[in-house]
């Protein structure tokens, strides 16, 4: 799992900067932030979108693609914020890399959101065909 997240993040933002933080990023921040935002929170948001907003509360009002996109963007914002927050929590050396990382995380959160959507949407009552 660690290596998967490391691969994903470093694929688009390269090696951690400053290099001294490499172990911190690779063994703590990447897996923790990835696990929590990309897997946990994103899955939760997808579940909320498909099974709360579009299932439990009896309304079909939120089934449009732009609602889906809205939740995706909120999720991306959370992913961005959490990445920055977690870096600060771990007292990582301030560097623009933190923000690149946060951007990458937001980007992947969108990708994972889409993947989870494809996985979960079918059983949703009102959004089984959202976004498509």
């Amino acid at each position: 799992m660690k290596n998967i997240f490391r691969f994903l993040y470093e694929l688009i933002i390269g090696r951690p900067e400053p290099p001294m933080e490499t172990p911190l990023y690779r063994s703590e921040i990447f897996p923790d932030v990835g696990g929590i935002t990309l897997l946990l929170i994103t899955a939760l948001m997808v579940l909320i979108y498909y099974y709360v907003l579009n299932h439990l509360i009896q309304t079909a009002r939120f089934s449009h693609w732009y609602h889906w996109l809205g939740v995706l963007l909120v999720n991306a914002a959370i992913a961005f914020g959490y990445a920055v927050y977690y870096c600060r929590l771990n007292e990582v050396t301030p560097d623009s890399y933190v923000y690149w990382f946060a951007f990458a995380n937001a980007f992947y959160s969108a990708v994972f959101f889409l993947l989870f959507s494809l996985l979960f949407k079918w059983r949703s009552n009102n959004a089984a065909r959202t976004p498509f």
Binding site: R15, P16, P18, P19, M20, E21, T22, P23, T93
Partner: peptide, 14 residues
């Protein structure tokens, strides 16, 4: 020293 007086992209194992 992990972060100062250094060059290159190395990092400490522990």
């Amino acid at each position: 020293i992990p972060g100062s007086g250094r060059s290159g992209s190395w990092y400490l194992a522990d």
